[in-house]
Structure formats: structure tokens, C-alpha cells
């Protein structure tokens, strides 16, 4: 439980998932959390293959679209990477 509370669950879909070969990441964050834009930059640094998908994606924080990238992402939160949609 303690371990989960100090981490953010990152969900990757479509091209983001295919770039990394996995659909979820358990991302460590400090107890105060991290800004969304800093989290995205850290993801791109750690996984350069994710870069193209991150540049074209929308982000969803705890099920809600993120409009302000200064939003703090806190331990226990869910952060989803949504590449351009392709339903139909």
C-alpha cells in the first residue's frame, strides 16, 4: 500500500503503448507530487521512443481531460496518455 501511495499510475494507449511495449507504468513521485508538464518531460527523457506520441497526445488526469499542465499530479493519481483518437 505504502509503495502504491508514493507512485502515479500511467496509462498508455495505442501508439504510446506500442512504442513502449506496455500499457502501464508505475511512476515514482515525491509526496508533494509533480507538475503534469514536468511529468511529461521526465517520461520523454526516460523513454525517448515515447516522444512522438507525447507530442501529439492529450492527457487525462484521474479520468478528466487535463487543460492546465501546471496541475499537480499526486501520489496515487492516474495519468493517461491519449494519442489522437481513431474510433469508427
Amino acid at each position: 500500500m505504502t509503495r502504491r501511495r508514493s507512485r502515479v499510475v500511467i496509462l498508455l494507449f495505442a501508439s504510446a503503448r506500442e512504442a513502449l511495449g506496455r500499457g502501464t507504468l508505475d511512476w515514482p513521485v515525491s509526496p508533494d507530487g509533480v507538475r503534469a508538464d514536468a511529468l511529461v518531460r521526465a517520461l520523454a527523457r526516460t523513454y525517448p521512443r515515447l516522444g512522438p506520441a507525447l507530442r501529439t497526445s492529450r492527457f487525462v488526469h484521474n479520468g478528466e481531460y487535463l487543460h492546465d499542465l501546471s496541475t499537480p499530479i499526486r501520489p496515487g493519481d492516474e495519468f493517461a496518455v491519449h494519442p489522437p483518437y481513431g474510433g469508427g
Binding site: 494507449f13 495505442a14 494519442p83 474510433g87
Partner: peptide, 14 residues
């Protein structure tokens, strides 16, 4: 309906 679905619903195909 179909235009909005394709543009704004988080569904993907591979």
C-alpha cells in the same frame, strides 16, 4: 454522432 465519436471519444484501432 459519427463525426463527434471519431474526433472526441478515446477509442483507438490498430
Amino acid at each position: 454522432l459519427i463525426d463527434e465519436l471519431k474526433a472526441s471519444v478515446p477509442i483507438w484501432k490498430t
